[in-house]
Nucleic acid binder design. Structure first.
Lengths: 117, 117
DNA sequence: CTGCATCCTAGCAGATACTG
DNA sequence: CAGTATCTGCTAGGATGCAG
């Protein structure tokens, strides 16, 4: 393996963290449905602050996962969408999220059992 | 959807963060190959501290993703493995990681292009 | 509307030392 | 070996204000 996330110094680690991070995962999957504007994204990703969304989008854009298209109008309009690589990534992320959402009862039961001890 | 990660207050969010977090994702995927002992895990997940590994394992055990089996011998021996739910989760995580590892050249090129501006 | 700049704080995370 | 305990620095992340 050339790029192994298990290696401390591998450049894939920061990128994996952008993707799976608290806001990165939600941002990517929110964009999976299609292009969104900044404030549309902000409403979708419940609880994200302007600052964090902005930072998250910049990191994902730099990694080549998100495409940013700004129009020089007034008021300004900026559209965010996924690149082909971003789409592949979001797809796998969604698969993970759907699994989790579907099996939350199992998780909650495990937590209750753990706490009972 | 009953448990929607996009909702700020949904109980699935903390669990998603345990799974996708910096050490959670690496720990889960390391265990995908089979049972490991504490220090074996520590060596696999390059860079993790004792403390973080311990915390991570506890969170994943509580969520019902990891099984902890302690033997009361001397010296002590503790084995960690995945539950069925943990295996399903790790599988999807691995799919994501393999995608990323395989396409790192693309990511690095995007980063270089971004930085050039 | 879409951001960047600034300030501030809680808690994440590393280092170290210790216990059964 | 498999952890806990403590201390401490760092930075993620929230709040606010401002600009194009």
């Amino acid at each position: 393996m050339d790029y192994n996330v298990f290696a401390k110094a591998c450049p894939s680690r920061p990128t994996l963290e952008h993707i799976t991070g608290r806001w990165g995962s939600l941002t990517l999957t929110a964009l999976a449905d299609g292009q969104l504007r900044f404030n549309e994204l902000r409403r979708r990703v419940d609880g994200v602050s302007e600052k964090m969304l902005s930072q998250t989008l910049q990191a994902l854009e730099r990694d080549g996962l998100v495409l940013r298209e700004a129009q020089n109008t007034n008021p300004p309009r900026v559209d965010y969408s996924l690149t082909p690589l971003g789409r592949d990534t979001a797809e796998r992320l969604l698969s993970l999220i759907h699994l989790l959402e579907g099996r939350m009862p199992e998780v909650l039961a495990a937590q209750a059992a753990y706490d009972a001890r």
